[in-house]
Design a protein around this nucleic acid. Structure first.
Lengths: 214, 214
DNA sequence: TGGATTAATTAACAGTGTTAAGTAAATTTG
DNA sequence: CAAATTTACTTAACACTGTTAATTAATCCA
């Protein structure tokens, strides 16, 4: 039954081709402008053909969401070799922020939009959210390591991890939605007006909090 | 010229009627399902009539965004009488979180969606973002008060305010997008699985950090 | 009362996601 | 090998969306 395998492989190739076209449009024109019809035109097939390979648009959104997590894991894997857990925690936070600045569209799809997570819940309710949990587990382990080194004593690991995630996500999210843009102008501190440094310096303030309660 | 005034008032009434209809649809069916045509049907006018009173859909979105800030300010005004600034900071955080839980749709419009802020930037670039700045200033002043009482010494006020905002926004945002739902299941700590307590307990962890460095 | 202004309408454009029905090619079966 | 069946894909269509241009009905002013 080698023929069935070949067909399956062809099918996977086709799915990848669709995703590649979707990714191209998504990066250059954003999610809203990435229509099924445009994806179809890109790969020179009829729009309905897409539906033979992806259930609906949120299915494609989830696939792109996964692509984004691939990119993020790539970055984070470089930090696995930072031995000191507190240094690694710092580096993860900075890496997370830099990822959001470098790939705002992917960040939006991964952490701001509801569609991909809703798709997961609606169509694969039993499945776990692998991509996210992998990254989150890395964070959990890093926090655990920090505790071994005397940080955050008497603070629950999970809460500490979620807090750290919330801090960086809050920063990135308010940056991308341009909420900070409208608020930072009124700031007296000139340093903070520069958007790029704003995120890092507020994250720096968080790190100072952590450092002081070793 | 009393007639011109009456017309102007009628115009404002009509704008309010449109907004009321939009608000009703928005609350019951969400933003995406709130179409210009449905709003028009609700007030029993033609869809194009809407455009005589609101520039486009993002204009309506911004008006609803402002409505949301009205609701939020209403809640926060009750906290103005909490004298101790650190207690007020706690109460503001809890109030912010509770607002997001009680009015997730408004919260999305106010802090997660890009459209309203983009409208502000595109059509009123000189204007300030009054609603947001009012709330943010209340936060600034509260942080300032905390510093007087010996908290966050040597931490810049603005950074501290932005950090606090980022923490609660990060929590609310990850809750609404149901990211926490998929991650909390794996948590060993049973307390955290309950979504409602999760936000408050992670915020509690943040407060503990603050308290310890008085 | 007649002309100008204003308010609201209908019709239409250009798009969206998605489904049902139809066609041509490839594959399996008798 | 020819007939039947499955597979891959397309066309046509539905029910929407935001938005604009052209048009009609009503009101105001001289």
């Amino acid at each position: 039954m080698g023929i069935k395998e070949r067909k399956e492989r062809h099918r996977e190739d086709f799915k990848a081709r669709i995703l590649q076209a979707a990714k191209k449009l998504f990066i250059t024109e954003g999610y809203e402008a990435t229509s099924i019809r445009k994806i179809a035109a890109e790969i020179e097939f009829s729009p309905t053909t897409i539906y033979l390979y992806y259930k609906d648009k949120t299915d494609i959104a989830y696939a792109l969401h996964q692509e984004g997590f691939g990119l993020m894991r790539e970055r984070f894997s470089a930090l696995a070799h930072v031995d000191d857990p507190f240094e690694r925690l710092k580096a993860m936070g900075r890496g997370y922020i830099q990822f959001a600045i470098d790939h705002p569209d992917f960040y939006e799809l991964m952490f701001i939009m509801k569609e991909p997570m809703q798709y997961l819940q609606a169509h694969h309710p039993e499945d776990e959210w692998e991509e996210g949990e992998q990254v989150f587990n890395a964070l959990i382990q890093t926090v655990e390591g920090c505790k071994v080194h005397g940080y955050f004593s008497s603070m629950p690991t999970e809460e500490m991890a979620m807090l750290s995630w919330s801090v960086v996500h809050g920063l990135c999210s308010l940056h991308i939605t341009s909420h900070f843009k409208h608020i930072a102008e009124k700031c007296s501190d000139i340093e903070l007006i520069k958007q790029d440094t704003l995120l890092e310096s507020v994250f720096g303030a968080y790190l100072q909090l952590l450092e002081r309660l070793k």
